[in-house]
């Protein structure tokens, strides 16, 4: 029983990071309709920038972290301006944009390997400090992750629900042509969406870099996780995306606990396939299920 509780704690910590990542992916996907694999690059960019500042300038972690998130936000906006917008201008399709994104991801990965080797970059030394709740061990840092994720989720939801910008974003997501007719510049909205989604990915990246470290290959790996989170949560639903990410974290932890750590990656794909077949609109999605079938 204690071990089950322990696994739940571990699962929430892992799932929290996934939830942030999926939330960012979802914000972008829902609005721009782009399979943004480079989200993974944005995610590691934040971690690497933070690591460079902590390691080479001795900046305190929080300051380096702010620079890291700003860097990720900028990187996301640059990707929109430099990759996706030109492609949209050329009326490139979904697949072209996806392939461009994938190529970009490989490029960034190769670049990081070239400039900084494949070494793991961890923002801390030694184990996390923990406290005990009965027999269950909880790391303070994991509590921070969970609290921050809940706060960010609430903030993003509030932003999208009750600000003019939020409505503009959702309007573009819902009916891009009509959005034009009520004065919404969709390019500007897309840029905003990339900034928002990328800052979420950046925060997730720093959490990850502090908790278990980053290496270049994680980018693609976690971009896949983020997209799976969105799919199982229900495309089009942001609470769904967050819930999807959390579910994945819990599932991976549970599988590692019940079977073996070797199954934690395959289980993510298996869950996704199960959703596509049996519940294509995901946990909370109600609308885009037709799109999901078409997409996959």
């Amino acid at each position: 029983m204690e071990t089950l509780a322990q696994f739940l704690v571990n699962g929430f910590a892992l799932g929290g990071v996934y939830a942030l990542l999926s939330l960012g992916f979802g914000v972008i996907y829902n609005t721009v309709r782009i399979f943004h694999v480079l989200h993974g690059a944005v995610f590691i960019t934040a971690g690497y920038i933070t690591w460079v500042f902590v390691e080479h300038t001795g900046l305190p972690l929080y300051a380096a972290g702010i620079i890291g998130v700003a860097g990720a936000t900028g990187a996301g906006m640059l990707i929109e301006l430099g990759v996706y917008r030109p492609l949209r201008k050329k009326a490139a399709g979904f697949l072209t944009a996806f392939l461009a994104s994938l190529a970009g991801m490989f490029f960034i990965e190769g670049f990081l390997v070239a400039v900084s080797s494949t070494d793991l970059k961890v923002l801390k030394q030694g184990p996390l400090s923990v406290f005990h709740l009965g027999d269950v061990v909880i790391a303070y840092f994991h509590i921070i992750i969970i609290v921050v994720v809940v706060l960010l989720f609430t903030a993003v939801t509030l932003f999208l629900r009750s600000t003019q910008w939020g409505r503009m974003i959702r309007a573009v997501a819902s009916n891009p042509e009509l959005a034009l007719s009520v004065g919404i510049n969709s390019n500007q909205v897309f840029l905003m969406v990339f900034a928002l989604g990328s800052s979420l990915a950046g925060i997730a990246g720093i959490f990850r870099a502090y908790d278990v470290g980053l290496e270049p290959v994680v980018g693609l790996q976690l971009a896949i996780i983020a997209s799976i989170g969105v799919i199982i949560g229900g495309i089009g639903s942001l609470p769904g995306a967050a819930l999807g990410g959390l579910t994945l974290g819990l599932a991976q932890t549970l599988v590692a606990f019940l079977l073996s750590g070797q199954w934690s990656q395959p289980v993510a794909i298996i869950i996704m396939l199960a959703f596509i077949v049996f519940r294509p609109y995901g946990l909370l999605g109600t609308r885009e299920h037709k799109e999901l079938r078409r997409l996959l």
């Binding site: 003019q164 910008w165 503009m168 959702r170 819902s174 009916n175 009520v182 089009g236």
Partner: peptide
Amino acid sequence: QVFGYMTGLENVMVSAPWGIGVQE
């Protein structure tokens, strides 16, 4: 033409892209 996944009220509010709320 409506924004299908927004409420009636939001559909109306969206056409007021003015004021300080527009500056992110």
